[in-house]
């Protein structure tokens, strides 16, 4: 099992021959990801990293049976590349691009209606199921196989939580970065749902940020629908209101979307909450002990 991607996934990269795609495709292959090729318009028919390059996603899918795509295309062209992936029948599209215009995302989300592809990102570190499949930019060596699912907006904070757990001997089932933009292809609830029905995941770590109603909506959903414990953290307790803290989505616009307000609500709904970003690992350990879960 695991969530969204596993060792059966056939992965292509769009923007395959670029620097970052090349580096992370190699890293993905080194942890066992089944990378079957890539797409760079204009370079079809050549090979890269010993794998076939295609001009279009449709050709890549027809030739390789690919069902997952890592979209490493620059932000101005990224939404179009995602539509191409979905049109070609890709089941899970992952986009790490930071800086896709929001109106492009509004149109893309409309395009996805009635089409069942999963979209991870944008502005995401990607997704990794340790030892099986990585589609993203995370340092794969810090992710050890285990039974904790992670879902986060931020990439680096996802790494931070992973390392804290790793130091305590705790591993990861799947880690999903939904991204730091105001419009995400996949929201927290969708990922929580997937973790709830995943046999390998026993606890879920949910890492949010200031801005937007998503964390609270997810916590409310979880209270009603989840049997597995959740450990929550929300970054930005010290962020001033009205300022965009790096991520386009991270801006406090009302009293209810401050970090403290979100964590208060999570706690009131019965989630474990790490109030200090350095205590995420310890809080997971506490949840494991209280539920008799072993690493």
């Amino acid at each position: 099992m695991s969530v969204f991607v596993n060792k059966e996934s056939k992965v292509i990269f769009q923007g395959f021959t670029g620097e970052h795609a090349s580096f992370h495709a190699q890293d993905a292959i080194s942890i066992g990801t089944n990378v079957v090729g890539g797409v760079t318009p204009g370079k079809g028919g050549t090979t890269h990293l010993g794998l076939p390059v295609f001009d279009t996603v449709a050709e890549a899918v027809a030739a390789t049976g690919a069902d997952v795509s890592g979209v490493f295309v620059p932000p101005p062209f990224n939404a179009d590349a995602l539509m191409e992936a979905i049109d070609a029948g890709i089941k899970v599209a992952v986009t790490i691009a930071d800086g896709i215009p929001i109106h492009d995302m509004v149109r893309l989300q409309r395009y996805r209606l009635g089409r069942d592809a999963i979209l991870i990102g944008p502005n995401s570190p990607g997704i990794i199921t340790p030892g099986e499949c990585k589609v993203g930019i995370m340092p794969s060596h810090i992710y050890k196989k285990g039974n904790i699912g992670i879902v986060s907006r931020s990439g680096t904070l996802n790494y931070e939580a992973t390392e804290q757990m790793s130091a305590l001997g705790i591993g990861i089932s799947t880690s999903v970065g939904i991204g730091g933009d105001p419009i995400n292809g996949t929201d927290f609830v969708t990922v929580l749902k997937a973790f709830e029905s995943d046999l390998e995941t026993e606890i879920v770590v949910m890492i949010g940020e200031i801005g937007g109603p998503q964390e609270v909506a997810a916590a409310r959903w979880a209270q009603k629908n989840m049997s597995k414990p959740i450990v929550g953290f929300v970054a930005g307790v010290s962020a001033p209101p009205g300022r965009r803290m790096g991520h386009a989505g991270a801006i406090i616009s009302s009293e209810s979307d401050t970090a403290s307000a979100k964590m208060d609500t999570m706690e009131a709904l019965g989630l474990y909450v790490a109030r200090n970003p350095a205590h995420i690992g310890q809080t997971v350990l506490q949840a494991m002990r209280e539920h008799g879960i072993k690493a």
Binding site: G155, G180, E209, G236
Partner: peptide
């Protein structure tokens, strides 16, 4: 990273 940056400010605070 914006998330870790925010968290670092939080840790200092």
């Amino acid at each position: 990273g914006a998330g870790l940056a925010m968290a670092s400010l939080d840790a200092i605070t």
